[in-house]
């Protein structure tokens, strides 16, 4: 029986005026690959930030590595790699690709240690995983959005994490890179036994790779193998539209009529 490393127990998270996640109970076991889906504003990013201990539970509890999330320490966080949802980046910020990825090492290094050659090698390897090894000294601000995304994935990998939280990793990158990013994630899961929490709107892309899908809309509507979650009666509660699910695709009924 695999060990539970993230446990939501009737946990509620929110901001001063909104509840973003309500009464969530969910166990994620070591080495699991979990996909998180749900419409905009359904609390997916909040789920990530909660796991990182960046939010206090308003009710219930959340344990990560047997530690309450509000007491998560730096050395715990260093074991969680995080790719934030794409936000605005100051294109003029003077930082190179390699400097960005090296930041992934800082948490694990601790306060008084300088990065060594070994840390540099880890960063270089992470960059080669995402195919950016020939852009080490490029200014981050001069890369395209998708290339920046790859650099940030490399930074998360450079942490050599046990758990990887990926908030829409394939949004805004080209189709070839999307597939290579997904291949990379599958490899990290299968060969390096990382626990992966992947948020996406692209259900078709991940449905064959994940062990479990979690369907959110403030509350947890479903959590289980993809074939159990991707059923019209389940999805309708959350997306409010009828969805047709074929062998490979998942199509909104409206669009379906439109195109056929």
């Amino acid at each position: 029986m695999a060990k539970t490393i993230i446990r939501f127990d009737h946990a509620t998270f929110g901001f001063s005026d909104v509840i973003a996640l309500q009464d969530i109970s969910l166990d994620i076991t070591e080495g699991e690959f979990v996909g998180v889906i749900g419409p905009n504003g359904s609390g997916k990013t909040t789920l990530c930030r909660a796991v990182l201990g960046l939010m206090q539970p308003m009710g219930g509890s959340l344990q990560i590595f047997d530690c309450a999330c509000e007491e998560l320490r730096c050395h715990h966080r260093a074991r969680i790699g995080y790719l934030p949802q794409k936000g605005a980046l100051d294109r003029n910020f003077p930082i190179t690709v390699l400097e960005t990825v090296m930041m992934g090492r800082y948490g694990a290094l601790g306060l008084f240690n300088r990065p060594s050659k070994r840390d540099r090698d880890i960063a270089l390897e992470a960059l080669s995983h995402v195919g950016m090894e020939d852009r080490l000294d490029s200014a981050l601000g001069h890369l395209s959005g998708g290339q920046q995304q790859r650099v940030f994935i490399a930074r998360a990998l450079a942490q050599q994490p046990d758990v990887l939280l990926l908030d829409e990793p394939t949004t805004g990158i080209d189709i070839t890179t999307q597939h290579s990013v997904l291949d990379l994630i599958r490899h990290l899961h299968r060969d390096l036994k990382l626990t992966i929490l992947l948020i996406t709107h692209d259900i078709n892309m991940i449905r064959s790779s994940v062990d479990r899908l979690v369907l959110l809309k403030t509350r947890l509507y479903a959590a289980g193998p993809p074939e159990e979650v991707l059923r019209p009666d389940v999805l309708r509660q959350v997306y409010g539209k009828d969805l047709v699910i074929t062998e490979k695709d998942l199509i909104l009924v409206e669009d379906y009529h439109h195109h056929h």
Binding site: R49, L52, I80, P84, M103, G104, G107, Q159
Partner: peptide, 9 residues
């Protein structure tokens, strides 16, 4: 926030 998330105080 990213610094905080990756284990820097």
């Amino acid at each position: 926030e990213m610094a905080e998330a990756s284990g820097v105080p």
